[in-house]
Every structure is written in structure tokens, then in C-alpha cells.
Computed example of a mutant assay.
Amino acid sequence: MLRRELEYFFGAVRFFTRLPVPGWVGHSAEALNRSARYFPAVGLLVGSIGALVFLGAMQLWPQPVAVLLSMAATIYATGAFHEDGLSDTVDGLGGGWEKLRILEIMKDSRVGSYGVVAMVLALLGKFTLLSALDATLVPYALLAGHALSRFCATVLLAAMDYVREDLLAKAKPLATRLSMAEMALAAGFALAALALLPLEKAIAGGALAAAATLWLAAKFRRWLGGYTGDCLGAVQQASEIAFYLGVLVHLPTAVSG
């Protein structure tokens, strides 16, 4: 039982990152389907890498430099997997006007102007928001942001239909519905990370991440009738940025008469 769950977890690590996994971990479509429950756990792992690099870099450089190095570390760990999905999704939705054309653009390995703009804005957005955040909160925000955003993508995977049938699609092995128990496990990883933050910041960040997910889900349903692997990457990126935006919110204080 434990070995099987470890195999599912390491399967998720292998699929969603470029990190090494033990040699005994097998590979099958069924195992990869089951590994979707550990998508937020992979986020915790990637967020931990970012947090550790940030903490180390803060001993030598100002916060913006530490944030930049932290972002570089997480992108290196994932191979820009989700950033690529965001770029392809925005290219497709920006350049296509019907389902088949959108899917064709998303499948194209070339990056268009819409995708470039989305990538630049996403990277600048994360850099700006994390640089503006209190340095003591950044490691916890990274952990929660990476875990929660991947849970948002897991919700999309569980709630919507997969719309591409070709063998080259990124999320083909993950085109499955998760059980309630699997979703509860995935949610547990995200909630554990959120618990590290002050309650009001966790709530604000979670609310904006949920709003970004619902907004994108509505677009995907309207234009595609479901999701593709690139859509999952777009949700991860958008909800991560929205989460940091929520954590940074400064609520106005009441002025006493």
C-alpha cells in the first residue's frame, strides 16, 4: 500500500518536473492517472525548492534578487512545463475563433505573440508580487502558491471533460475523473500549505485563486468544451499569480471618529 502510493507520488514528480525519481518507480497510464492526486504535493516540493533558494539568497542579496533566483530554481525544477502551457493556451484562445483552430494553434510548438506577452506578464507578475511581499512571508507564500495552484488545476481535471484525443497531448494520461477520496487527499496538501499563512491572507489568496480558476474554466468550456494539458498549465500559472495578489492585499482599516 505505502509502496504503491509512493510510486504514484514519484510518478507525479517525474511527469510534472525534471527532478530525478527512484529507479524502481514504474511507468504506466493507470499509475499516472492515479498520480493526479499528488499534483498539489508536487507543488509543495517545487515550492520548497523555491523557498529554500529564497532563504539562502536573502543572506547575500536584496529581496528582489532572492525572488529572481527562487523563480529561476522553480522554473529549472519544472522545465517551464506550466509556463509553456500558459503560452500555448493564450496563443490558441487569442489566435483561434473556433475549437479545431484553437486546438491546432495550441498544439503548434512555435510561440506566437500572444503567448510571448502572456509569458512575460506572468513572470513579471510573480516577480513584482513576491518582491513587494514581506520577506518573512515569501517562503510560506511560495509553498502555498505552488500547492494551491496545482490543486486548482486538479479541480479542473476532475470537473471538466478532456477534449483532445491525439496521442501527442500533454495531459492524455491524466484524462480521468478523480474520486472524492482522491480529491480530499489533493485538497489536504493545499490546505496544509495555506495553514502556514495568516488566516486573512490565506483566505484572500485562496479566493482570488478560485476566481482565476473559475474564469478560465468558463472560457475553456465556452471555446473548447473542456480542457487540454495546456489548459491545466494555464490554470496553474494564473491561479498562482492570483494567489500572490490576494496575499498582498492591504485591506483598508476603519477610521474611528
Rank of each mutant, 00 (worst) to 15 (best):
M119G: 08
G85H: 00
A193L: 00
A190T: 00
A187G: 03
M71Q: 15
D230Q: 09
W24M: 04
G112V: 00
S179E: 10
G246L: 03
L156E: 09
L232A: 02
L143S: 10
V247S: 00
V53C: 11
A51E: 12
L142W: 02
K219Y: 05
K170T: 14
L32S: 03
A195E: 00
T228C: 11
V117C: 05
Q63I: 06
V13H: 10
A210T: 10
V21I: 13
D230A: 10
S70M: 10
E200T: 14
L245P: 02
M58L: 15
G47W: 02
E83A: 07
D166S: 13
L86T: 00
P64A: 10
I203D: 02
I105L: 06
L214K: 09
R34M: 09
L129I: 13
R18M: 14
A135R: 14
S35H: 03
K107H: 12
A122Y: 01
W61H: 11
R14H: 14
T154K: 09
L178T: 01
G125L: 13
G145A: 08
L86G: 03
G95F: 02
P198M: 08
I102S: 03
Y114T: 04
A204Y: 08
A147F: 03
A158T: 07
L168Q: 14
G233N: 07
T176S: 13
F243H: 04
W24C: 07
L199G: 05
H146F: 14
I203N: 01
Y140W: 15
L148H: 11
F151W: 12
A66W: 00
L68A: 15
G246K: 01
A41K: 08
Y114E: 08
L121A: 14
G115T: 01
L124C: 14
A210E: 13
L6Q: 10
L224T: 04
R101T: 13
A175Q: 00
G96K: 02
L69W: 05
R110Q: 07
T176E: 08
A80M: 12
G11N: 09
S70D: 07
L2Y: 12
K172S: 12
A36C: 14
W223R: 14
V235M: 11
S256K: 03
G47E: 08
W24V: 03
N33T: 12
L121G: 08
L157A: 09
T78E: 06
A211E: 01
R164G: 04
L208H: 09
L2F: 15
P139L: 12
P40T: 08
E30V: 14
L185S: 01
F16Y: 15
F151E: 07
V25K: 04
A187R: 07
F10E: 02
G233A: 06
A122F: 08
D166I: 07
L142D: 04
G205L: 04
E200M: 12
A36W: 01
A57K: 07
F243N: 05
W215N: 07
L129K: 03
K170G: 00
L100F: 04
A77K: 02
S109G: 10
A175M: 00
K219A: 11
